[in-house]
Write a protein that binds this DNA or RNA. Sequence first.
DNA 1: TTTAGATCTTACCATCATGGTAAGGTCAAG
DNA 2: CTTGACCTTACCATGATGGTAAGATCTAAA
Lengths: 134, 134
Amino acid sequence: MNGDLYNIGQAAKASGISAKMIRHYEEVGLLPAASRTFSNYRTYNHQDVHMLRFIRHSRDLGFSIKQIGDLLSLWRDKNRPSSKVKSLAADHIEMLNKKIEELNTMKSELSRLVSCCHGDDRPDCPILDSLSAD
Amino acid sequence: MNGDLYNIGQAAKASGISAKMIRHYEEVGLLPAASRTFSNYRTYNHQDVHMLRFIRHSRDLGFSIKQIGDLLSLWRDKNRPSSKVKSLAADHIEMLNKKIEELNTMKSELSRLVSCCHGDDRPDCPILDSLSAD
DNA sequence: TTTAGATCTTACCATCATGGTAAGGTCAAG
DNA sequence: CTTGACCTTACCATGATGGTAAGATCTAAA
């Protein structure tokens, strides 16, 4: 095998992104169209795999595909002001905080109800009572 | 208007669930098929709206449609053991905790990166550095 | 060299909860 | 009777991912 080239399966293994998703990212324009072998197989080089890993790390931090597109642009722009990256990341932290708060609200309320419920064989249940309250 | 009957828009307002979603819940079997007027409009009575509110409260606590189906069964079963409700709710709390933890992990890591980034006009950026690290 | 099995290609469908739109029927008030 | 608000169904879209099927291609072993 050409030491420099990966097919999609190898790129997937090397990057931690499934082949399925690599194709998807290409389709939605997050990735440029991969070059192809004569027999129409996609090929990737080290740089491509590097970019895939960038995407993977970004996904792991919860960035959306749209946001990752912006991050990639900034990454490629060697003259970006770091302030742009920082504010993009800060926005995302805001969104994470909002979601965390929502989930915490749910959790608190539900925990309260659960702690009120006997959880035995009798039918009385403050959880159902609360859900059916007006 | 018949003091006892709601059309779908009125049921939506009274329950806080959109007409769209009421139809959807019916389609996926969470709700029994609504009765219809002669002209094929869905009609709902007080009990139906009560059930819709139950669903609404359950959604507000983050239960899935599948879980709400189970909750509704327990609600209707006047002989349910409250333990069943409690364990269903406890399972959901577990899932909420898992999600919260995931988001918190993202948030911590990203916050760390953000705090390391100058956020000025220079291109050096620990956030991008970390995302592109091997 | 042939062949079997792994892997590639595209093109679909599904998830989950929700929103939107379009085309057409119905109802209520003026 | 008209107008506007509402209803009906039947689609499509979101966002990120997984699945499957049918067919082409590659690779390693027999």
